[in-house]
């Protein structure tokens, strides 16, 4: 028979697995919903339990009725446990999302690819998509203070100034010091690494050799 807190535990086990993955697995909408429902049910139970006491005495004294006190405590602890599981699950995911934003991935695009590109289905919840968008804006605003330093750029000095790249998906025309290049799918270019670093991180280009 399922116990209170079992669904929450499943969420945390999901989160634990997520920590070791490079991508973000689909959001567990059903589990989250059932944990939230559990909390609502528990709250209702607690209110019902307390009602007769509040009506008669105006307050509840645990020492006169230890059995009810025990039930209420179990009830309260179950809610608290569920809350902790929910928060930990979401925090693990937002931590991961922040990392992805900092490493320059196009998170929303990435999550759509994972689910096979079906429109409307994403591995993020709508709230998480919102979070990523706003966090991305924040990061952009922060980086805007130092226009001459790329804060999310690689810390490794490049070995070669110029590299071969292959275009994985159409990225349109970009301007470089040596003129404009039109990046169409499957074409190859010999370009300056600094010009295309962003595009490689975003998955438009692949570095060769």
């Amino acid at each position: 028979m399922p116990m209170y807190g079992d669904a929450g535990l499943k969420l945390v086990q999901h989160a634990k697995r997520t920590q070791n993955l490079t991508h973000l697995p689909p959001y567990q909408t059903e589990l989250v919903r059932s944990v939230a429902k559990e909390v609502r049910d528990l709250h209702k139970d607690a209110t019902n339990l307390l009602e007769p006491f509040l009506k008669v005495q105006g307050s509840f004294d645990p020492s006169t009725d230890p059995a009810t006190a025990c039930t209420l405590l179990v009830n309260h602890l179950s809610m608290r446990r569920n809350k902790r599981c929910l928060l930990a699950y979401h925090r693990t995911r937002t931590d991961k999302l922040e990392d992805l934003v900092w490493s320059g991935h196009d998170v929303l695009d990435l999550s759509a690819q994972q689910t096979g590109g079906e429109s409307g289905s994403s591995s993020l919840s709508p709230q998480e998509e919102d979070y990523v968008r706003q966090y991305g804006d924040l990061l952009a605003a922060f980086k805007g203070h130092w226009t001459d330093i790329d804060l999310t750029g690689s810390l490794e000095p490049p070995k070669d100034l110029f590299i071969d790249v292959r275009v994985l998906k159409d990225a349109g025309e970009i301007q470089t010091e040596y003129g404009a290049i039109n990046l169409t799918k499957n074409s190859q270019f010999f370009v300056r690494q600094g010009d295309v670093e962003r595009l490689i991180a975003q998955g438009y280009l692949q570095k060769l050799g």
């Binding site: 807190g5 920590q19 902790r84 930990a88 693990t92």
Partner: peptide, 20 residues
């Protein structure tokens, strides 16, 4: 509070006897 291992530890089963 958010430590997953700590939360998972919380799920370990303890043999208990009720006193009331």
């Amino acid at each position: 509070y958010y430590d997953l291992d700590a939360i998972l530890t919380g799920a370990e089963k303890i043999p208990c006897t009720f006193q009331l």
